[in-house]
Design a binder for these strands. Structure first.
Length: 585
RNA sequence: GCGGCCAUAGCUCAACUGGAUAGAGCGCCAGACUACGAAUCUGGAGGUUUGGGGUUCGACUCCCUAUGGCCGCACCA
């Protein structure tokens, strides 16, 4: 019996053909298959309700007709029941469950099955994107963590992903910074911690410029010189960026991030002329108060709130570079989709940007990629106020990760004192960073993030440690029994599922595809996190209820099969979220 | 002023974008290690989903409204 990876998809297809066979309007009927509350079944189809309502039909009678038209393979695999006002419930038969577990038996098989969803597409994901000359702080965490998870999810469903770090390397901050660099540089401090020194220099420049208009003017001249290509200033600028990127990469290494390209604002600096030309030629942009702006007359707000793409002084701004960036991503990468991961405060900007890009590309007959602004809430303190760079007391990402590892190390040492120190340290590095990442991924990205050490580092409840612990216990069983996860010969001896905990676990495992689909389509990784947490919970319940190391070889083989698949799905899922996994902790 | 987002158990969050009796963790109460790792598990208490109206077979979800919070709004990114 062939059992598809994504059961919901297969059900959807079967229901559509059954609808045609039963005489429904094929194009109008949407089955609406989704995972169901386990009290009702494994999957439910709600589509008859809407279809019947629109045509004033009896939904239950319609459901009866549809079920009668289902192909025999499907009714052989599921118990099918019509319930309530017209829900169709599907419960996997035990043999189907077991067949799924046997079929989807390796990381390669999972990947190959999942990768059919978006094969052939190319997506550019723009995330992290810090400003150079500054340290990454806690506010930079979400974009990096969420963005990386989205990249991995898209790749898993078959997309070619271009990871693009769109760094802020061309801002007006460089005038003050270069001014201070030339006059107040401390070479020893630069050697010790360059980003600390750049931040100090910026503060020196900023304070001086505020106190003395002459300094402000000098700083402005340094910026003009830089942008005109002055070799000395360009050299300073380049050094600042190189050093910044080196420091960023240390953070990215800890988070498991490696960008394909780092095309910051400076990269697009000489590509703005075409943007001005095309938007002016197509009459999308117009002069207003000396600036070149785009209004959107059909929009309640943007008909009066301008999208400024060239300032009155002739300089470009980030609207200009973002427009050029969109074009580059289309023409150079042939992007089918563009995802930009930034906080929600930039929602207006990206709404204006995407409106403008749509009209611009249409006017030029360019192909239009899917455009997604993936927003997330603010990182706030306990008082609910947003943490900001200039408020002081911002938590540096470097220190945050170090603190996370230190706390994890203390905990590992307490729980597993028998492990050698270097192994405890290696474990702590994984647990600490994973805890920080997972704290972000377990939560819907739209909500604000209340920053609290204890919550972030806590290793209890719905945390990375809980998931990693479940995996470590599975590895431990295989070590103790001298068995190998996924060994086909021993799995062949597995008997039919029996206990409630076995069934609950197996029924959760087969919904992996659905969790991935949901997380990927909505660009919300927390759906996968939630699934993995439930899976780990079902496994822990199974572990407590049913002993694996029993005498009966068929029962033992069956439970080892469940352990192996749980491990496979858990580790595959955790890696998709960007976390590293452990065999011992 | 205009606009966007948000408000769910004491606390932190879910709820598959309109589906069935709103679920978890923490905390609290009561249990489970001479069983493969107790960083665990089992059970219990805890809700007018901010208030009020509406839409329909069905609303935490959509619409209107009130209140409270966060954020954006002409040359920063």
């Amino acid at each position: 019996m062939p059992v598809p990876f994504n059961l919901a998809d297969a059900l959807d297809a079967a229901l559509k053909s059954a609808a045609t066979a039963a005489g429904l309007e094929a194009g109008a009927f949407v089955p609406e298959v989704r995972t169901a509350d386990s009290r009702h079944g494994d999957f439910q189809a709600n589509g008859v309700l809407g279809y019947a309502k629109a045509r004033k039909l009896n939904p239950r009678a319609l459901a009866e007709k549809l079920v009668a038209a289902l192909p025999p393979e499907l009714t052989a695999a599921y118990e099918v029941v019509i319930a309530g006002p017209g829900f169709i419930n599907f419960t996997l038969k035990p043999a189907t469950l077991l067949a799924w577990l046997r079929t989807h038996d390796s990381a390669d098989h999972l990947k190959a099955s999942a990768a059919t969803a978006r094969r052939g597409q190319t997506w550019v994901v723009d995330y992290s994107s810090p400003n150079t000359a500054k340290q990454m702080h806690v506010g930079h965490l979400r974009s990096a963590v969420i963005g990386e998870a989205i990249c991995r999810l898209l790749e898993f469903s078959g997309t070619r992903v271009v990871r693009d770090n769109h760094i802020g390397d061309w801002g007006t901050q460089f005038g003050k910074l270069i001014w201070a660099y030339q006059r107040h540089l401390d070479p020893a401090a630069l050697a010790a911690d360059p980003l600390e020194e750049f931040e100090r220099l910026y503060q020196v420049g900023n304070t001086a410029a505020e106190a003395d208009p002459a300094v402000l003017e000098q700083a402005r001249q340094e910026l003009v010189k830089l942008q005109a290509g002055d070799p000395a200033n360009l050299a300073i600028w380049k050094k600042i960026n190189d050093v910044s990127l080196g420091a960023f990469q240390q953070i990215y290494d800890q988070l498991g991030i490696r960008f394909d390209v780092t095309l910051g604002e400076s990269f697009y600096h000489d590509q703005v002329a075409r943007v001005y030309r095309e938007l002016t030629a197509t009459a999308l942009a117009a002069e207003s108060q000396g600036a070149l702006v785009v209004f959107h007359p059909e929009h309640p707000r943007f008909r009066t709130q301008p999208f400024i793409m060239r300032k009155a002084d002739g300089a470009s701004n980030y609207a200009t570079t973002d427009l050029a960036t969109a074009l580059y991503r289309l023409e150079h990468f042939h992007a089918d989709g563009i995802v930009v991961v930034t906080d929600f405060r930039q929602a207006d900007h990206f709404e204006q940007l995407f409106l403008t890009v749509r009209k611009w590309f249409a006017a030029q007959a360019y192909r239009l990629p899917e455009l997604h602004h993936v927003t997330f809430g603010a990182v706030t303190g306990e008082d609910g106020k947003a943490l900001r760079t200039r408020d002081g007391g911002t938590i540096k990402l470097k220190e945050l990760l170090a603190e996370a590892e230190a706390r994890a190390f203390a905990l590992v040492s307490e729980r597993s004192a028998d492990l050698p120190p270097e192994e405890r340290r290696a474990i702590a590095a994984v647990v600490g960073v994973a805890s920080v990442q997972y704290a972000d991924l377990a939560q819907n990205r739209s909500s604000d993030y209340v920053f609290a050490w204890d919550k972030m580092i806590s290793l209890e409840g719905n945390t990375a440690a809980y998931l990693l612990y479940a995996g470590a216990r599975i590895h431990s069983i295989f070590r103790k029994l001298g068995a190998t996860p996924g060994d086909a010969a021993s799995e062949a001896a597995a008997s039919a599922l029996e206990t409630p905990a076995e069934f609950a676990l197996a029924r959760k495992l087969v919904k992996f595809a659905d969790a991935i689909r949901l997380a990927t389509d909505t660009l919300r990784p927390h759906f996968l996190g939630l699934y993995l947490y439930e899976l780990a919970g079902d496994y822990s319940a199974f572990y407590a209820a049913d002993k694996v190391a029993v005498e009966d070889p068929a029962v033992r083989a069956r439970r080892l099969l469940l352990c192996a698949r749980t491990l496979l799905v858990l580790e595959t899922g955790l890696r998709l979220l960007g976390l590293r996994t452990l065999t011992r902790m």
